[in-house]
């Protein structure tokens, strides 16, 4: 009887719709996974497959046995971790003052931020800057350009604005200093947005390859995405330059399955990170502290 009482049509419809949507979302991923484990010919035969045919690890072999894989993976992990840590710290301390409606000069600061979101000097000026700072061919050059984005900053400021003001007043009356207020009270309450930005910035760093094209000169400093892209583009170039199968030998080119395998290698680690972030998206848990 109790089960029936909790059953609502709303839920039935909601769950069904979500299930449907999940299936639609899932299909291409399944397709990508299936193709990456198949042979090229079975891909040609049926590009829309959802189950691997002629199971083949050729694409993965080609990528995973490549000497540059390990270094590029390590590079990307370092870049992502450093970039997220420093970035989140910067977002927190920069968004907090901006979230205070009483801050003098607030409009001016906001306009400055908005400007950076809209105007960009382009390839050459950014290159000159990094070069003058002596950062060419360093991992730092891959971290710094993406540390602070106006969009994320505005999101965090917005979230902090929505926190009740009574908190600040109560803490101030207890004699709290501004840093204490920020790090001990505001930050714990802002975990949802912090988690969100961690995710956004992490993915941003993980997927970026173009900065490396511009700033990096040695292969040891390549990030993962660049390495993967190069495998695909290099394979394509071999095709264009007229290599025939006999010439190429054992490292035969398999462009499509290769592309799909690189996609899998990129996607899987991020998917592993996400569950850790999920727990911050639980409703109501943060506001409980206000009442208490």
């Amino acid at each position: 009887m109790r089960i029936w009482k909790r059953f609502e049509w709303f839920d039935a419809v909601n769950y069904t719709l979500l299930l449907l949507i999940c299936v639609i979302m899932l299909y291409p991923f399944v397709n990508v996974a299936a193709v990456s484990f198949s042979s090229y010919s079975s891909f040609l035969e049926n590009p829309m497959m959802i189950w691997p045919k002629q199971l083949s690890f050729a694409a993965y072999n080609q990528i995973l046995s490549h000497p540059v894989l390990l270094s590029s993976y390590t590079n990307t992990i370092i870049i992502t971790v450093c970039g997220v840590a420093i970035g989140i710290f910067l977002y927190i301390i920069t968004a907090y003052p901006l979230s205070k409606k009483h801050l003098k000069g607030r409009n001016f600061f906001m306009v400055i931020v908005i400007f950076t979101m809209l105007f960009n000097g382009g390839l050459i000026p950014n290159f000159y800057l990094i070069r003058e700072l002596g950062l060419l061919d360093t991992l730092t050059a891959l971290v710094v350009p993406m540390l602070l984005s106006g969009f994320n900053l505005i999101l965090m400021k917005n979230f902090m604005e929505s926190l009740p003001e009574e908190l600040e007043e109560a803490a101030k009356m207890d004699g709290a200093s501004e840093p204490y207020l920020l790090f001990r009270i505001i930050v714990p309450l802002s975990m949802p947005i912090i988690a969100t930005l961690c995710l956004f910035t992490a993915v941003g760093y993980w997927n970026n390859f173009f900065n490396a094209v511009i700033y990096i000169r040695s292969v040891e400093n390549w990030p993962l995405m660049l390495f993967l892209r190069e495998i695909i583009e290099g394979a394509r170039m071999q095709e264009i330059s007229g290599a025939n199968a006999a010439e190429v030998g054992k490292n035969a080119v398999v462009p499509e399955t290769l592309k799909y395998a690189t996609l899998m290698i990129v996607m899987v680690p991020i998917l592993c990170v996400y569950p850790f972030v999920q727990k911050y998206f639980v409703q109501g848990i943060t506001l409980g502290s206000v009442k208490g």
Partner: peptide, 19 residues
Amino acid sequence: AAAAMLFVTACSGGNGGNA
């Protein structure tokens, strides 16, 4: 993270910091 960054800069600086 900051320490790691410095470490990393130092290392990759050795790998070649010029254009």
